[in-house]
Computed example of a mutant assay.
Amino acid sequence: MWHNAVLPRLALGIRGRTAANVAFATGYARVFAGEPRWGAASGWRLGLAAAAAVLAGYGAALAVPPARKALAAAPDRAPGVSVAEWIGVHIPLGTVYSEELIFRGTLDDIAGTPLTALAFGLWHLRPARAAGDPVLPTVAATAAAGLVFGALRRKSGSATAPALLHYALNAGGAVAPRLAR
């Protein structure tokens, strides 16, 4: 409800949405006794390894001409702020911190990974519609990502591992098409 109904009705700009998401996620975790364990060494180790693999994949895609061409053709999803602000503030706080705290840091312990992954997929309904993306594939892809993120959370005992992977996917997806162009 927050991401698909309440937040859009607030009609905030990107900075306001980021602040609202951070406040909502932090409050949600406090109310439901979230345990993200951000500082766990196992989360950092596993997360950095997963993020490095994703970033290597983006690097390889940029080096292969057909993949580079496909990246260059991707629509520009810039939200009206500089790329530095987008990947330095809005992706890590408004997206990664907020979503990983809610889903892997709190809801996974309450509902289990399969239901949390489904909720994570449904969380992306409104953004898919707003971007003009096909809704069902977007929900399916983000639910599948939620399963992977949940597995990383279970394996590492920390929401840091999925957060680092999530950040690498999103920041790489913001930067790689620009580099390809």
Rank of each mutant, 00 (worst) to 15 (best):
A84K: 08
A171L: 09
A61D: 07
H166C: 12
A33T: 06
A168W: 04
A141L: 11
G112W: 10
G112E: 10
F103Q: 07
D133R: 11
P8I: 01
A61W: 07
I87D: 07
R181H: 06
G173F: 11
A145M: 02
T142W: 04
N170H: 09
G27H: 08
L55I: 06
E100Q: 10
A60W: 08
F103Y: 09
S156V: 10
A145R: 08
F120M: 14
W2T: 12
W2D: 03
R153A: 08
Y167F: 10
A180H: 11
A19E: 13
L71I: 10
H124L: 04
H3E: 15
E100P: 02
K155V: 01
S158E: 00
A23I: 15
G43I: 00
R104S: 06
I102P: 00
V139F: 09
L152D: 01
P92M: 13
V83D: 15
G146P: 13
V83P: 15
L62R: 14
A119E: 03
A23M: 10
P177Y: 08
G132R: 02
E100R: 15
H90R: 13
A50L: 11
W86S: 11
W123Q: 01
A159D: 02
F120E: 05
D108G: 03
T26L: 15
L12A: 15
A78Q: 12
I14S: 04
R178H: 11
P65M: 04
Y97H: 02
L55E: 01
A53I: 14
R129G: 05
E35M: 13
G94M: 14
R126F: 10
G173C: 12
R126Q: 07
A41P: 03
L93C: 05
V96E: 03
L101G: 01
G34Q: 06
A174M: 13
G43T: 00
T26G: 06
L101P: 14
A11C: 07
A23S: 09
L165N: 01
G173I: 10
G27S: 11
L136D: 04
L136E: 07
I87V: 14
V89M: 02
P66M: 11
G94I: 00
V64H: 07
G94S: 12
P8Y: 05
Y167I: 02
Y97C: 11
R30Q: 12
A111G: 09
E35F: 13
A180P: 05
A176P: 11
F120I: 07
P75R: 14
A171H: 03
L55Y: 04
R104I: 02
A25L: 12
L12P: 11
A84C: 05
K155L: 01
A56W: 09
A140L: 14
A174I: 11
A41F: 10
D108W: 03
A72F: 08
A33K: 13
F120K: 09
G57D: 00
G112T: 02
F24I: 15
S98C: 08
L93M: 05
V22W: 04
G157R: 07
V96D: 03
L107Q: 02
A141N: 10
V81D: 00
T138C: 08
G27F: 12
L118P: 07
L12V: 08
A56H: 14
R15F: 02
R68P: 04
R104G: 03
E99H: 09
I14G: 09
Y97K: 08
Y97D: 05
W38V: 03
L164Q: 04
A5H: 13
T106K: 03
N4K: 14
I87C: 13
V148C: 12
T116A: 01
V83Y: 12
A174P: 13
A33G: 08
